[in-house]
Nucleic acid binder design. Structure first.
Lengths: 210, 210
DNA sequence: AAAAAATCGGTGGTTTTCCACCATATGAGG
DNA sequence: CCTCATATGGTGGAAAACCACCGATTTTTT
């Protein structure tokens, strides 16, 4: 018997999922939570095997909550859940220990199979997620949004920026002038749609460029 | 009907896998290949849905072959296969487009489930692989293994830094002086073991603080 | 072959970050 | 009561980042 908890701030989503698991005999939806606080409170008092966890919650983002839950209850298996648009967080969610990933418009068969797979300790990534991740790895189109294509030099400079080198240090390392690195920097911030170094690094990591 | 090809230079492994799929009705093992060359030749003449691919082959390594096959036959789903020890290649294999990963000593139920899952376009990583990857991810924390504890204000400032606000803008937003934000900034860079804003953002994201 | 992008480089200046070295106040805990 | 961490604030200066506005090759794309 797999004991399931659903965490999502949209009651409609929760209802839909409950509907799905009323038909299954091996999976029992034990409860629901509309916020991170609620979820943590529930887990204090109820043993749970699998959690379906929305990425956007009112009080804490899904990544953080995922990490927190796993630090408190390491045996729990977490499946991330998002709408089709919020894909940039998937890899981070997985990094934080999520074992599965689904979109809110996934067919119910997928939901069931994902819960079963994850409960067995394996991981389950839905087809659409796979495609997104591959697109990312290939530095190609991410449906709706582009992953900026960097040139060799730009990628090189970016890597050194992330390694905390200053413009001057990068110039020395690559035997180029200060101005050249500055130019590349400008192009990078522009391509990644950032305002400054903070955004540059953030977006680079979100795009999986690091 | 799922058409399967097994690529492995050990005939014993191939025989074992054939045994497993003689019992399944929805999966048909169409052929076998003992080398990369053989595999590519086979694929020229036979339509295949799923490949179980050993990582170590005499003429080409599994990673390369995986990439090559996917470039020629993008619709094929590939499951990596290794002995328990060769785990270091898993992430690269996945990066190269493998959808699943199994160990040679996996129980036959896993084999079957993996093929079915992968054929549906989803990805399947066996429990042991998951554990290895997580262990790896945790080992990559070279910057000290404890997550620095931030104060409320620090966390707040950090979030705004990551949102690309400048010190001045943060001060305005929080109705504090410039100097105060600077102090918090210094504390943050120190706590996160960074040299500058780039490192601050990077480490914050690595620690999952964002 | 022409156009576009990438690579390299520069001047000159403004803004932001980084840092040292502080000071005050408050609240929690030994 | 005293210490420690937190939060707040300051001065002043050096270093780095940001930006505009350039020009000149080379490479890639069309």
């Amino acid at each position: 018997m797999i004991r399931l908890l659903v965490v999502d701030d949209h009651p409609i989503v929760i209802d839909g999922i409950r509907q799905v698991f009323q038909e299954t005999e091996d999976i029992l939806m034990m409860g629901e939570a509309l916020s991170a606080r609620e979820a943590l409170a529930f887990l204090e008092n109820h043993p749970i095997d699998v959690i379906i966890l929305d990425i956007s919650l009112p009080d804490m983002n899904g990544m953080k909550l995922c990490k927190k839950i796993l630090s408190l209850f390491p045996h729990i298996h977490i499946i991330g859940l998002t709408t089709y648009e919020e894909t940039s967080f998937i890899s981070r969610m997985i990094k934080n220990g999520a074992k599965g990933y689904l979109f809110k418009n996934s067919p119910k068969e997928e939901l069931i199979q994902a819960v079963r797979t994850v409960a067995a300790g394996a991981s389950y990534l839905t087809k659409a997620v796979n495609e997104k991740l591959i697109a990312k790895a290939l530095n190609k189109r991410e449906l709706g949004r582009f992953i900026p294509k960097l040139t060799r030099r730009e990628a090189e400079v970016l890597e050194l920026i992330v390694e905390e080198l200053t413009t001057q240090e990068i110039a020395d390392r690559l035997c180029l002038s200060n101005s050249t690195i500055e130019t590349h920097r400008m192009h990078l911030t522009a391509k990644l749609g950032a305002r400054n170094t903070a955004g540059l690094v953030k977006n680079a990591m979100m795009y999986g460029l690091i």
